[in-house]
Amino acid sequence: MKQIPVIFMHQLTRYGCSPSTYLSAAVFLVLCATLGLHVGQWLERDSSDLQVFFQLHPWLYLILTPALSIQLWSDEHDAGFHTLLKTLPITPFECVFGKFLAAWFVCGIVLMLMFPIVLIANHLGAADNSVIRSQFLSSWLLAGSYLSAACFICTLVRQQVVIFLLTLGLLLSVSGIYSVIEALEHQMPIWVIDSLISLDPLSRFDTIDNGKLTLSDSLFFISMILAFVSASTVTLTYKSR
């Protein structure tokens, strides 16, 4: 476990040195603010929370998550450096978890950069900060689960374009689960529908986003992160044999 901070800092430096990090973060923030203000008409609604902004996040993560995930294993594209890493006393878990934490931390920073909207909400006077906190947490948890899935994809394939497309495809599928559930509502047994709903991260995101922060929803995201991190670790361990 002692190498996790080293890998975390190394990956964070790599993100800091990469223009694509700033570009994807800027696109995420600009789109979030523009769509929330103009399409969501937040100012006209006189809302006490930031739901019009946060409800866009599952879709906006389709841009941010693949952009961050393709950089997760960019070191491994340099053949010499990749082999060198294998000679160092770093376990696959330390490698995966350190890299994942760095990507998640970057997501956290991007979310923090939404603070002017929070300031405006408080300035206008009707802000419910406990709901806003819950919305930030739900968005960050969703980002973590998306990133852990992307991290797993990175351990399976090496080509950056393929990683980007696979991550995008996976996240689009997740985003589309709700539509599938709606379409199947009258054709499938109720327990299948209930199971699908319980597996849908977006419905859990909506619950927390509405200010209902429950342990089960939070644990759902955390367990999803742990599952994908474990799968990535197992894949890397298997590959290194």
């Binding site: 960019s74 340099d78 010499g80 000679t87």
Partner: peptide, 16 residues
């Protein structure tokens, strides 16, 4: 791995 230092045969490279 902690006890060993290894200079690999191929070029050590990193793009950044």
């Amino acid at each position: 791995r902690e006890a060993v230092g290894y200079q690999l045969q191929g070029d050590l490279n990193h793009h950044r």
